[in-house]
C-alpha cells in the first residue's frame, strides 16, 4: 500500500513549480494524482520528490478568450463534465469526461495530468486531436505552444520535455457537431477503442482514435470519407482482452456510431 519515500513540495506558481523541477530532476509533478499515485503504490514509479501543482492559481478553470477555449491544466474531469461553457461550445469534452473512470476519479483527476501522462487508453487524446487543440507548455526559458498532432509522441510520451510543464489547453471554439464513441475495457474501463469525430465550423471534419494503439492518432481515412478498414491491425496493440484484429474491427464500428451522431 505504501509508496517509496519522497519529498513533498507544494507550489503556488508555475515559476516555483519549474524551479522545483530544476532542483529535483527526477521529481514528478502531482496534479490529481490518479495516474501517478497508483503507479507509485505498486512501486512501478518511485520519484524522489513530488511537486504538488494542483492549487496553482490560474491553472484551474475554463474560459473563453475570443474564439479559443482555454482550459487550465489543473481543471478536473468533473469540472469539464459539468461546464456549461463546454457543453455549449465544445460538447465532446463533457461527453468524454463523463466516461472517464468513475465519479471519484473525475472529482480528483485533471485534464492536464491525464494528457501529460499520455496513457494510450486515455480518452482525451482522441478529442484533442479531433478538436485541433493546442497545448501550452512552459519552462524556465518561456512558453511554447504545441499542436495536439505534435503533442502525443508515443506510449506514455508527450512533447513535454524534462523541466517543462503543461499549463493550458487551447481549443478552437468552432465545433459544429461532435461525438465520442468508446468501447471500454470491462475491468479498467479505460478505452479499448475510442473514436472522436468533430465537424468544425469551417466545414472540415477531424477524427481521431485512442486506446487501440501505442498513442492516439488521427484517422485520415475517416476524415476523407471512408468508413471501413480505417486502421491496420498491424499498427494496433494486442492483449488478453482484445487482439489487434478485434481492435481494428472495433475502430470501424465505433467510427460508424460516432459518424451517425455528427
Amino acid at each position: 500500500m505504501y509508496t517509496a519515500e519522497f519529498d513533498y513540495k507544494k507550489v503556488s506558481s508555475v515559476a516555483d513549480a519549474l524551479a522545483a523541477l530544476k532542483a529535483h530532476p527526477d521529481a514528478k509533478l502531482l496534479a490529481g494524482g490518479h495516474s501517478l499515485i497508483p503507479t507509485m503504490k505498486l512501486r512501478l514509479a518511485s520519484p524522489s520528490a513530488l511537486i504538488d501543482v494542483s492549487s496553482i492559481p490560474g491553472l484551474k478553470g475554463i474560459r473563453l478568450e475570443g474564439d479559443v477555449i482555454v482550459i487550465g491544466a489543473m481543471t478536473t474531469h468533473r469540472d469539464i463534465e459539468h461546464s456549461s461553457l463546454l457543453k455549449d461550445k465544445c460538447p465532446i469534452l463533457p461527453e468524454q469526461a463523463a466516461l472517464i473512470g468513475d465519479p471519484m476519479v473525475r472529482n480528483k483527476g485533471t485534464i492536464g495530468g491525464s494528457l501529460a501522462h499520455a496513457d494510450p487508453a486515455a480518452d482525451y487524446p482522441a478529442s484533442m486531436l479531433a478538436l485541433g487543440a493546442k497545448m501550452k507548455i512552459e519552462s524556465s526559458s518561456g512558453a511554447r505552444v504545441v499542436t495536439a498532432d505534435d503533442f502525443f509522441v508515443g506510449m506514455f510520451q508527450t512533447a513535454v520535455a524534462e523541466g517543462e510543464m503543461l499549463t493550458e489547453i487551447h481549443i478552437p471554439a468552432n465545433t459544429k457537431s461532435s461525438a465520442y464513441e468508446k468501447f471500454a475495457h470491462p475491468a479498467s474501463r479505460y478505452a479499448i477503442v475510442g473514436v472522436a469525430v468533430v465537424k468544425h465550423a469551417d466545414g472540415t471534419t477531424r477524427a481521431a482514435l485512442t486506446g487501440a494503439g501505442a498513442s492516439a492518432v488521427r484517422l485520415p481515412k475517416l476524415e476523407a470519407g471512408s468508413i471501413s478498414s480505417l486502421v491496420s491491425a498491424a499498427d494496433l496493440l494486442s492483449d488478453n482482452f482484445a487482439s489487434a484484429e478485434y481492435r481494428a474491427h472495433l475502430v470501424d464500428v465505433m467510427a460508424k456510431k460516432a459518424l451517425a451522431r455528427v
Binding site: 470491462p186 475491468a187 479498467s188 488478453n240
Partner: peptide, 15 residues
Amino acid sequence: VSGSYLEYTMPRADD
C-alpha cells in the same frame, strides 16, 4: 496476467 482489478473484471452495478 489478470492479477489486479485493472484486468480481472469484477461485476459492477451496471453489469
